[in-house]
Structure formats: C-alpha cells, structure tokens
C-alpha cells in the first residue's frame, strides 16, 4: 500500500511539472499573438522595453528612431516591420515587447509624441548604450546626440 501511495504521489508531482512546463510555453504564444493592437501600442511596448529607465526625452527619441527607420530606404517600411526586424531591438529578442502598456503611462505618451513628429534625435536611425554595446560596427557611425544613457547616430 505504501508503494502505491508513493507512486501516485510521484505521478501527480510529474503531471504538475509537465503542466507547468506546458503552461510556460503557452504563455509565450499567448502574449505574442494576442496583441492585435495598433502601431502606437506596439511602439509604446518597444519604448518600454528599450528605454524604461530613461528620461522622457530619451523615450520619445527611441520612438523617433523607429519612425525614422520606417522612412529610411535601408529599413522595412512599416512600424511592425522595423520593430520585429531580426536583431534590431533587444526588447523584441527577450520578449519584453509582449508587456502590455496602459494608455495613460509615460511610455505611451512618449510614443504619441514621436508619432506627432517630435524628434529629439534630428533624424537618427541607430542608438546604443556605450556601457553595454558589444558591436564594434556601431561605434563607427556618426553620433548626433547623447540623451540619457543612449548615444543616437546616423
């Protein structure tokens, strides 16, 4: 009887673990597919993932870079295309982009300002954090401005 009890206990433990693992993967899919939201929400999410701790100006600047890329011939021509381009934003690679943003939050207002034409970067299409950037190539770009922790360049 003892053996049976133990086996049942172990089997249930096993099921719980499997359920947790399954749920984990399901959550990722859910987050990625459920955002049938507009461009501004998508941009707010990107800003949140990329520049949450930055001054307001730096948040508008990240939004402006996304829009400058849309306008540039060297990048895709839509906001979603630019944001989800391979390796373009770490907030996309690590899944922070799936974090929903409330409409009255600061990053949402920053996204709105960028959409309305405020561009603190004067037309930049790249930025990097000098403290963490590992890509040598990025240092060769002409820097226009430093806002908060980010250097913005052409």
């Amino acid at each position: 009887m003892k053996k049976l009890g133990l086996t049942i206990f172990l089997i249930s433990l096993f099921t719980v673990i499997v359920v947790i693992v399954e749920k984990g993967t399901q959550n990722i899919v859910y987050g990625a597919t459920s955002n049938s939201t507009s461009d501004i929400q998508l941009m707010a999410r990107a800003i949140n993932g990329e520049a949450r701790g930055e001054p307001y100006e730096g948040q508008v600047a990240v939004g402006a870079v996304i829009l400058n890329r849309v306008k540039s011939s060297q990048f895709p021509n839509t906001i979603a295309g630019v944001i989800y381009q391979s390796g373009a934003f770490t907030a996309v690679s690590d899944g922070q982009i799936n974090h929903p943003i409330a409409e009255n939050s600061t990053v949402y207002k920053a996204a709105r300002d960028a959409m309305n034409g405020w561009d603190p970067t004067s037309g930049c299409i790249y930025y990097f954090n000098p403290a963490t950037a590992t890509n040598k190539w990025i240092w060769s770009r002409p820097v226009v401005k430093t806002i908060g922790k980010h250097k913005f360049c052409k």
């Binding site: 011939s73 060297q74 990048f75 895709p76 295309g81 381009q85 391979s86 390796g87 373009a88 190539w137």
Partner: peptide, 19 residues
C-alpha cells in the same frame, strides 16, 4: 524587400540590398 527583412540577419549586414 518585405521578405528580405524577415531573414535572421542584422539590418546593417544588408542595408544596401534593402535600399
């Protein structure tokens, strides 16, 4: 152009092709 940007290659590697 749309499908080019979906390849897993960083934008600066293909910026002239994209352009």
């Amino acid at each position: 152009q749309t499908y080019l940007s979906r390849l897993p290659i960083e934008s600066q590697e293909l910026e002239n092709t994209q352009k």
